[in-house]
Simulated assay, not measured.
Amino acid sequence: MARITTQDGTRIFYKDWGSKEAQPILFSHGWPLSADAWDAQMLFFADKGYRVIAHDRRSHGRSDQVWDNNNMDQYADDLAELIETLDLHDAILVGHSTGGGEVTRYIGRHGSARIAKVALIGAVPPLMLRTEANPGGLPIEVFDGIRKGTYDNRSQFFQDLTTPFYGYNRAGSTPSQGIRDSFWLQGMMGGLKGQLDSIRAFSESDFSEDLKRFDKPTLVLHGDDDQIVPIGASALATVRIVRHAILKIYEGADHGLTQTHQDRFNADLLDFIRD
């Protein structure tokens, strides 16, 4: 199992598939998941001739569970260390949900010299939390509820969270117990302290200044029925900052669209990468 050790001694697990000579695509996962959330995309793009890499964020999955530094700056710095350790160039960054925040903060802190393109999928930027300057965000009580559910009984909470995450509470949906089980298993692999810290990281981090540093082709893809990261304060606000971005909206799609709309998503991402 491949790992890097960061400057603060944290071991970060990662998968690295496909030809090492090919253009790399790096996938950053959502909360509370792991690199396994991207397996279908990794196989698809490796078969198309790309090098595909996905890591478990610190305190998630198979990476070390740490007490401190579970914050967006550190997540971005961990991603930078992975990119630099593997000496990646002309890379395509793909971030879903919290992973979209990680990718965005990476650009803000480390620039885009090693990056060719960026894709933000159901991503949390610019800011999820409702503030005076961000009235379209979600109230703090929403995130307090996520904290309480995770702390009190995260096993049950993760099972219950799959319902809005994948839109299984919508008419016409086809719930998959396998997808539910995979979500639960990935979530339970992580550390409780780091997962609780990460709620603050994804909900209270303001990525507005990071987005202003975007200077590479950018895809912003979101479902307009996303019940976890509502589109108004996220994708629609992001493209007002990253004015050159391509906005693609999936009508009626949920937060977990990389799985519920897997074939369509893979094709659209491939088109963006090849264009």
Rank of each mutant, 00 (worst) to 15 (best):
R3I: 03
T5Q: 15
D8S: 06
R11K: 10
R11T: 05
F13C: 04
Y14F: 10
K20A: 05
Q23Y: 00
I25S: 00
G30F: 00
W31R: 06
P32H: 12
L33Y: 02
A35S: 15
W38D: 01
A40V: 05
Q41C: 01
L43A: 12
L43K: 12
A46W: 02
D47R: 15
R51Q: 05
V52I: 02
V52M: 04
I53W: 02
R57S: 01
W67F: 09
D68L: 11
N69M: 09
N69K: 10
N70H: 14
N71A: 03
M72C: 07
Q74P: 06
Y75F: 13
A76S: 14
D77M: 07
D78S: 04
A80C: 13
E81I: 12
E81G: 01
L82W: 10
E84D: 15
E84V: 09
L86P: 02
D90H: 13
I92D: 03
L93M: 13
V94Y: 06
V94T: 08
H96E: 08
E102C: 08
R105P: 02
R105F: 08
R105N: 12
R105I: 03
I107E: 08
R109L: 15
H110V: 13
G111I: 07
I115C: 01
K117P: 02
V118Y: 03
L120W: 02
I121L: 14
V124F: 06
P125D: 09
L129G: 08
R130C: 05
N134E: 07
P135H: 08
G136Y: 00
D144Y: 13
G145H: 13
I146R: 05
K148C: 04
Y151A: 15
N153H: 09
R154Q: 13
Q156Y: 14
L161V: 02
P164W: 07
G172C: 12
S176L: 10
G178D: 09
G178M: 11
I179M: 11
D181I: 03
F183R: 04
F183P: 07
Q186F: 00
M188L: 14
M189V: 04
G190F: 06
G191P: 05
K193W: 06
L196T: 14
L196M: 15
R200S: 11
A201S: 12
A201W: 10
S208I: 06
S208N: 02
D210G: 07
L211G: 08
D215Q: 12
T218S: 07
V220P: 07
H222A: 10
D225I: 09
D225P: 00
Q227N: 09
L236R: 13
T238R: 00
I241W: 13
I246V: 12
I246K: 14
L247A: 14
K248I: 06
K248F: 05
I249L: 11
E251V: 13
E251H: 15
D254I: 05
D254T: 05
Q259C: 14
T260V: 13
H261S: 11
D263K: 15
F265K: 01
N266F: 10
N266V: 07
A267K: 12
A267R: 15
A267P: 13
I273F: 04
R274D: 05
R274Y: 01
